[in-house]
């Protein structure tokens, strides 16, 4: 993204709109994101929108013999310093809150997992304007 860094490969924003355990979207996006990193790409950011925000819930508790996509994504994001944002409008509607929003709306708990922040669609507009590629992983397959 910087003027001085000459990169042969494009930078990516990954948008996930399908929920885990409802759709394959977070799983496909995970494998693609890891492949990008393994092949020397920069992942500018990950944006969760619509049903996709369910990925960032710390309360997701799949059976122990199933993949915990929330944990796997969190590890990948933190290890590689990738900013990850859940859309605030999608998140609040679906009961995904950080401490600040839980306090603001006087809810009993916050459940946003580590590695993710909550912000507006402006983050997505910014991504569209600045990333070389924006790739969407949808549900409903």
């Amino acid at each position: 993204m910087s003027e001085t860094a000459v990169s042969a490969v494009p930078g990516y924003t990954i948008v996930i709109t399908g929920a885990p355990y409802v759709s394959q979207a977070p799983a496909t996006a995970f494998a693609f994101c890891r492949a990008l990193l393994d092949s020397g790409h920069v992942v500018d950011r990950v944006f969760l929108y619509g049903d996709g925000v369910a990925l960032a819930s710390a309360l997701n508790t799949p059976p122990s013999d199933e993949t915990n996509w929330t944990d796997r994504w969190q590890e990948l994001l933190v290890a590689n310093g990738i900013p990850a944002i859940a859309c605030i409008a999608s998140a609040l509607r679906r009961g995904l809150l950080n401490e600040q929003e839980a306090h603001r709306y006087e809810r009993v708990a916050a459940n946003l997992t580590g590695g993710f922040t909550i912000a507006g669609l402006g983050e997505w507009v910014e991504a569209v304007a600045t990333s070389d590629r924006v790739i969407y992983f949808h549900g409903g397959a």
Binding site: Y49, A89, L121, G122, W124, V125, V128
Partner: peptide
């Protein structure tokens, strides 16, 4: 909402 957001940022 995505369309409205783009419009709000003059895109």
């Amino acid at each position: 909402d995505m369309a409205l957001s783009l419009a709000a940022f003059d895109r």
